[in-house]
Simulated assay, not measured.
Amino acid sequence: MAMQIPGHELIYSGKVRELYAPLDPATGARDEGRLLLVASDRVSAYDHILSTPVPDKGAVLTQLSLWWFDQLADVVDAHHVVSTDVPAEVAGRAVYVRRLRMLPVECVARAFLTGGGLAEYRADGTVSGVGLPPGLVDGSRLPGPVFTPSTKAPVGEHDQPLPFAGVEDLVGTRLAARLRDLTVSILERGNEIAADRGILIADTKVEFGLDPAQLGLGTGDEIDWAAVDPDAVDVVLADEVLTPDSSRFWRADAWQPGRPQVSYDKQVLRDWLTSPASGWDRASDAPPPPLPDEVVELTRARYVEAYEALTGRPFTTPAPPLHAG
């Protein structure tokens, strides 16, 4: 359950994040330009929010995203972070961000073949309608990163693959091309950096938004996406970027096409959930069971290991807030 933060109004609670509007201390009015984005320790898998949190996950994702925003400064137009000076209750796992209108597309790029992309390739020889060479297997490196967008489904429903023409229908040809180019460039830069640190980024999902003020619009006004000139406004990278939640991270020294890879991400808990040990039937309507302590600890360790390998910094758990009395 989302916490109450003095001076802030909760306006959204998602699978793993909350958004709060800062309030004017004199009038109580919402700040229309900023939001407080808080990353919780909740974890989702197979379209379920699990009952067991993973300690420090929110802090790892927040700190790793901040590091990546710096690494990507010359790749993306802008990012959404305004300040890391946040309330003590959420220190280390929250940021103040620009209030944006999010684009209605899940922007995904793949550098290696696995997961849902592998299933489509085996059936049709394509990924999101993009033809690939024959003979690829689970874990194969693709000739180049491929943009494989999907729809944004409501919580509890599956995102559906979207051909590039479908993206053009949603946001117009100019904005669709910019989303494709930015997403692919982020994955390319990510792999350039990660490869030197022993990590392969198989695929990643990123999100983009526009600042309605740059379009001369209010926060509630409709946007004609097809009319947007991406050369005239910032296409802003938002949410998280190149984290173990939004990407598949593999150990480079253990990479071997033709089998599942050793991962740094939440694949550990996915594997347990679909194993006989969990007793859970993914096809049923029943919620997943609580995670055992050893699965939680291993998942946390993988997240922390990815952070430390990429940034070269030791991860430290944020200090709890001090309370009087």
Rank of each mutant, 00 (worst) to 15 (best):
M1P: 14
M1R: 15
A2Y: 03
I11A: 08
L23A: 09
L23E: 15
G28R: 10
A29E: 15
V38S: 01
D41Y: 09
V43E: 14
S44C: 10
H48R: 15
H48W: 15
S51D: 06
V54G: 10
D56H: 13
K57T: 06
D70L: 13
Q71S: 06
V75T: 12
T84L: 09
V86E: 04
E89Y: 00
E89M: 02
A91H: 11
R93I: 03
V95K: 07
V95H: 08
V97P: 05
R99D: 02
L103V: 15
V108D: 01
L113H: 03
G115E: 12
G116Q: 08
R122H: 07
A123M: 11
V127P: 09
S128P: 02
P133Y: 07
P133D: 08
P133W: 04
L136M: 05
V137L: 11
D138I: 08
G139W: 04
L142H: 03
L142V: 06
T151M: 13
F164K: 00
D169Y: 01
L170G: 02
L170M: 07
G172Q: 05
A176M: 12
A177K: 12
A177H: 11
D181K: 01
L182H: 04
L182I: 02
T183C: 13
T183Y: 08
V184M: 06
L187V: 01
G198I: 10
G198D: 12
T204A: 01
G209K: 03
D211M: 09
Q214A: 15
G218C: 03
D221Q: 04
D224F: 06
W225M: 01
A232L: 13
A238C: 09
L242M: 00
D245L: 15
S246F: 01
S247P: 12
R248C: 03
D253S: 09
Q256A: 09
G258K: 04
P260W: 13
Q261C: 04
S263K: 10
A283N: 09
S284A: 10
D285F: 00
P292D: 13
P292N: 13
R302Y: 00
Y307H: 13
E308N: 10
T317R: 12
T317N: 00
G325L: 14
